[in-house]
């Protein structure tokens, strides 16, 4: 175990209330809670850069990763977050267990719950799955992505990346571009960034913009250049390859031509623009490598780093509310 770095130590000494049992949706949070989570995460960033990264805030706790959809990135991010806080971490992969043998989500949840985990991280392909699970278990549930609905820890890490890059979020113009329709990242980001005072725009072909998205309080653009005009942040979303080829976009090359981010299009954004992507990227489809790999512009590596810290902040806050918490 190591001592917390000074910044983190200070934040941990603060008493702030996080009166939630679960972490399911950005809409469950208020501005103060978000600010506290971001402060806490900032401290964990410093910790994670030390040689000795381990604390005992979650000592004795069990964190269970239940990923019905594959995601190396998010799953290992939660796993590291849990381990660095001293928790025991178990990864359940549905394909290798009875979950794929016709057992329902609820049955699985009840079974796992009986093993007395303290924190259950779930990713599932159906919107609302995390909420459903939370109604049937006694532990804390963390939504690591439910269908097209929400991915709240992603929004938190994105906000952390932006706040560290710009020193603020209020007043930033953020253009979220690409497959908004299927994106839980977009939904969580819109809600969180608007709460924090950013101007959010949605950019994509009409086939990938949800119905009545303009009623989310975002301006909607079908032209990438116009959409990112004056933007401080351009957030590109992954477009699954099978959704091109004439289904929702005519072809990969046509998509890249009009909606792929390259240096030439990026020139329409504000000076000092930063580019983000939740990963994994389709290089040459939604984003040019030239842009993605330019560390002066790209925040994509930062996002991954912030992911671990943001999740540590969420786990710590929830653990304070767990039964028998110290």
């Amino acid at each position: 175990m190591s001592a917390a770095p000074p910044g983190l130590h200070e934040v941990l000494q603060r008493t702030f209330s996080f009166p939630k049992r679960h972490f399911l949706s950005v809409l469950d949070l208020n501005e103060v809670e978000v600010a506290n989570l971001l402060d806490l995460a900032d401290g964990f960033v410093a910790l994670n850069r030390q040689t000795a990264k381990k604390l005992d805030l979650l000592k004795g706790r069990t964190l269970m990763n239940l990923f019905f959809e594959n995601s190396t990135r998010t799953q290992s991010s939660f796993e590291l977050a849990g381990k660095r806080l001293g928790a025991d971490v178990v990864n359940m992969s549905p394909r290798a267990s009875s979950i794929s043998k016709g057992e329902t989500l609820i049955d699985t949840a009840v079974t796992l719950n009986a093993m007395q985990p303290d924190l259950l991280v779930i990713r599932h392909s159906a919107s609302g799955a995390a909420s459903l699970l939370s109604q049937k278990v006694t532990c804390s549930v963390i939504n690591a992505g439910d269908g097209r609905h929400e991915h709240p820890t992603q929004a938190l890490l994105d906000a952390l990346s932006m706040r560290r890059a710009f020193g603020r979020i209020a007043g930033l113009r953020v253009a979220i571009c690409g497959d908004i329709l299927h994106s839980r990242v977009a939904r969580s980001n819109v809600a969180l960034l608007q709460m924090l005072g950013a101007e959010v725009r949605l950019v994509g072909p009409p086939t990938l913009i949800p119905a009545q998205a303009e009623r989310w309080g975002c301006a909607v653009f079908y032209d990438l250049r116009k959409g990112i005009e004056g933007a401080d942040v351009v957030m590109m979303l992954r477009l699954q390859l099978e959704r091109m080829d004439g289904v929702l976009a005519p072809s990969q090359r046509e998509y890249f031509r009009f909606y792929g981010l390259d240096r030439e299009k990026l020139a329409c954004a504000a000076p000092g623009v930063r580019v983000m992507h939740p990963g994994p990227m389709n290089r040459g489809v939604e984003i040019d490598s030239d842009v993605a790999d330019d560390l002066a512009v790209s925040l994509i590596q930062d996002q991954v780093e912030m992911g671990v810290a943001a999740r540590m902040a969420v786990l710590t806050s929830l653990a304070a509310r767990l039964e028998n918490a110290r």
Binding site: S127, G128, R148, H149, R184, P210, A211
Partner: peptide
């Protein structure tokens, strides 16, 4: 049903 509610909830909608 397709519309603001389904869009927010991330549910596939029918117009």
């Amino acid at each position: 049903s397709e519309g603001e509610f389904a869009s927010r909830m991330g549910l596939p909608g029918v117009p």
